[in-house]
Design a protein around this nucleic acid. Structure first.
Lengths: 255, 255
DNA sequence: CGCTCGCTTGAAAAATATCAAAATCTGTGG
DNA sequence: CCACAGATTTTGATATTTTTCAAGCGAGCG
């Protein structure tokens, strides 16, 4: 068994299941506070129906490996519920994926990164062969893929922007902003920021040591900028402070 | 005059000019040393002819601003000669663009970043209106755009990977590797790495202060890992050392 | 010639990494 | 529901690294 990519428990795609694959893409980076603007669903009914026909639903337990870099890519996934983390070669974290996100795509024959379930995950599993047939035959889906890629590109660029910050507090502030905007883009409440991943995962994502990240959380809380209900729920108390940290690294440098 | 986007000197698109727009995309991240594998041209003759028909050739002087974030996007560009640097909002550097690269695209109505000529630049200028017509009418070009976007996405992810490194030497080593691979992908010689941008630009790109970057260059040279012919030409002497630095941050941590 | 701009170098200060121990959380089994 | 074991997170002390501020150097240019 070269991969455990099929290890996820398979549920029948029957009654009571969601209505079919959903792909969201919208620009979550609106200036100012997060907006509740509804995300844009990229697939129309007919496209969704065709994708549903070839898909099954799989579940992964928290922490479970979904696929490993280099495994031959048998399927792509579309998240229904939960959060997935992808790791680039070298062990660094490439992205956090949420419901509506698509992953396991954009490789040629083999997966180019490793995917792990950060929380319990439920997802559509889309076998590549039929998926490719659909993509090739439908020009509309093609253009949706373009939109999705632009979306991911912006994400990656924001990640780079975050990592280019020199101060730990600036990185964490940008990270929190990012999560909040993504939440808003998904149509979820932004009363509180939900951080499904654990501290070491965040530390890796924003390029800090675990100890420094912990201290930085503490320092922001001590300053009254944020309040942590528990390890996975943070509230921004002083938005101006967070924004200032995030925008130009503690506001020392002139704009 | 809301934008100087048309300030570049316009050359007649006549005899002696290159044969038409060229878009390259290939995976420059082949393991091991750089390869001389030829880059893949994405456009066929007919596509190129149609793009040529709507394009003019423009030139920009070294340091000249090509367009600014927020300007209304009148045209995209395809580089013939020279290097362009794009700046994300906040002044951070998003990417370095080379001949065969396309930029000024993937915005909606307005440019989302700022582009500046890092060296003297010659480029095809593709007005958006006719360009859009071509893209909409041609499914093939569509799929080429997808390939190109995947390419840019990988680039951005590598940039993030680079920035996630904690030690300055590791970042610089990754940067040099990256430039070398890109050179190889473009079919240029890799006897020497050409760095068209100045030191502060590199410093921004890899998220270090100018002083630290300078010291790190010096330190790598002192260790015999690299040799700098001048500020824009570097040779890797000890490839193993560079690779070790680039792969796991000085090799302290187990794989 | 004197200028500015870009790069290097120096010294001190600040920030972060590292190593290690204590505290807290999570999930499991009784 | 409680107690326990293992994993995760916080906190502490110290060592490195990087930033910062400032001064020098050199090339290109008016």
């Amino acid at each position: 068994m070269p991969t455990n990519e099929t290890d996820g428990m398979v549920k029948s795609n029957g009654a009571g299941s969601p209505r079919g694959p959903v792909i969201y893409a919208s620009d979550p980076w609106l200036p100012g506070g997060p907006s509740q603007k509804a995300p844009r669903q990229l697939l129309n009914e007919s496209e969704r129906a065709r994708l549903t026909a070839i898909s099954s639903i799989v579940c992964f337990k928290k922490g479970e490996l979904i696929y490993r870099e280099g495994d031959s890519a048998a399927a792509a996934f579309n998240i229904i519920r939960g959060v997935v983390t992808t790791y680039a070669s070298g062990g660094h974290i490439a992205a956090f994926l949420h419901p509506g996100d698509l992953f396991g795509l954009s490789e040629e024959g083999r997966y180019i990164n490793t995917a792990k379930a950060t929380t319990a995950v439920e997802a559509y599993r889309l076998p590549v062969a039929p998926l490719r047939r659909i993509l090739l035959s439908d020009a509309d889906v093609d253009s949706h893929v373009i939109v999705k890629l632009c979306h991911e590109l912006r994400q990656a660029q924001r990640h780079a922007l975050l990592l280019a910050q020199k101060r730990a507090a600036a990185r964490l502030a940008m990270f929190l902003n990012l999560q909040e905007h993504l939440q808003a883009a998904r149509g979820e409440s932004t009363a509180e920021i939900y951080l499904p991943m654990n501290r070491s995962t965040i530390a890796e994502y924003i390029g800090l040591s675990l100890a420094t990240l912990s201290r930085t959380f503490g320092s922001l809380a001590a300053r009254g900028a944020i309040a942590a209900r528990d390890l996975h729920h943070v509230k921004i108390l002083d938005r101006a402070a967070i924004r200032k940290l995030a925008s130009l690294g503690k506001g020392k440098r002139g704009a």
